[in-house]
Design a protein around this nucleic acid. Sequence first.
DNA 1: GTCTATAGAGTGATAGAC
DNA 2: GTCTATCACTCTATAGAC
Lengths: 191, 191
Amino acid sequence: MTRTVFEKTDVVPLIAEVFRELGYEGASMSKITARTGLSKGSLYYFFPGGKEEMAAEILAHVDAWFVSKVFEPLEQHDPQQAISEMWQEVETYFNSGKRICLVGAFALDETRDRFDAVICQYFKRWIDALCAALVRAGTTRETAAIVSEEAVGGIQGGLILARALKDDLIFGRTVAGLAERVSKCIPGGTH
Amino acid sequence: MTRTVFEKTDVVPLIAEVFRELGYEGASMSKITARTGLSKGSLYYFFPGGKEEMAAEILAHVDAWFVSKVFEPLEQHDPQQAISEMWQEVETYFNSGKRICLVGAFALDETRDRFDAVICQYFKRWIDALCAALVRAGTTRETAAIVSEEAVGGIQGGLILARALKDDLIFGRTVAGLAERVSKCIPGGTH
DNA sequence: GTCTATAGAGTGATAGAC
DNA sequence: GTCTATCACTCTATAGAC
């Protein structure tokens, strides 16, 4: 019998892609075993709580990525640089719109109710972090709050359009448009 | 014994809400029978093709609604009035963000591949119709194309944020913001 | 031998099709 | 309601590292 040894840190991103592509309900255990190469035994060894625990860990993993790559820089670093890096990270992470936002997808159906705290926190922190960065860059609190919502929402909308239209360029246009509008509300911003 | 007689036209909107709330995979036949009051027999009488035929008819029904209430007015009526009515219809239809876009939700997971022609057509026609209305109102073709994408995408993003944050006001703010930006690119528009 | 990780047959429940 | 396939999940067996 061959024995492949997995580590949990390697397993989480694999399962994440299955949930991302098939959704919570569509990601059956058999699909997960087929696409990850892990047996049911291994999956339940890593995640005794089953499918719900897998999804919870995956959401936490996605959230942690955004915290370190996007939210914390926006909250702590130079605001203009952090915002500019945010657009870059977003374009790369979502692979020009070919990869969707797992948190956004989970928000749309009853899956939201299973994970509502994480889902709500993710978007709230993103909007608040961007807003705080804009305020530090000199934007008024009112404008910053409105623009931050528009930017985070706009990214989600761009991902839906990219998948719906099977258009590899639309997400880039969306991000570029949002970046321009955000930078225009920074006094002395590059535009 | 009581006997409730259903007509297919009454059944489609009922099933539509189940798909909208639970997603394609989450909307099991038992959930559909439970929430519509229809027996499995009735469902297969109305939809011999099963679940896939139900979803296809529901998508067609949603699309037809948008064609008559949004796309055709944008394509044919007074552009400024049609655009202003679009925002009104969108706010009402999505119930201030408490109701999501079925087409957008289907676009996110592998459900898209089952219905990709309808899903693509829906968003393409919406963007094109809005773009054409803006051009008729005097906007340059280039600006109109960009703004139309931003508006249709922005609506989808607003719906995701509304559900994720459980915020009844954010969708209204999103629509108001988009409406303002759209009207600003019309020469002599009301702003 | 112990311990950790893996395999996969087998469980009852429920899916969608008819 | 009845069908078969598949669901999430359990359990036993065991491979390999120590």
